[in-house]
Amino acid sequence: MPDQTPHVERACPGCNRRRFTTAGVGSLAIAGIGSAVFGYEFLSPNALYEPSPIVDAGKPERYPPGSVTPDAQSGLYVVHGPEGIYALSAVCTHLGCVTAWRPELDMVACPCHGSKFHIDGVKIEGPAPRPLPWLKAWLNDEGNLMIDRSEALTRKQYVRVQA
């Protein structure tokens, strides 16, 4: 198509559409990268208002020998077995539902997809890929039982209490 635009005096000699476009696209690219970085920083919260992973489970005397005490709110069981007290995660390793302790069956059962576990965490049946993890538990200076839900134990550890 022949150029039909009338001749205009240029205020800026040497300026042309290509240079303008290059400068514009370049500026937009820089602004885009900056926005992406700032956007990522903005979207990552710096302060979380979530419950602490460390739970104060109270005095160990609350858990008599041979008892299983579910705490659905914290998602764990405090078990007082023959070798001592341990804390077992109640969060199913399949897709994160909170399991239920069924004393009449002597097992832990997940209501979502039917996984079943022994009270030491070992799976009996169902789709769960791993046993329920044991959680780090200790007595603090006041003698309260503390449980860290963020830390799974790699081997069995018991909190021993005076009978």
Binding site: F38, E41, F42, S44, P45, N46, A47
Partner: peptide, 9 residues
């Protein structure tokens, strides 16, 4: 005071 770039936005 807490959120990154929050005061800017």
């Amino acid at each position: 005071f807490v959120v990154s770039a929050g005061v800017f936005l």
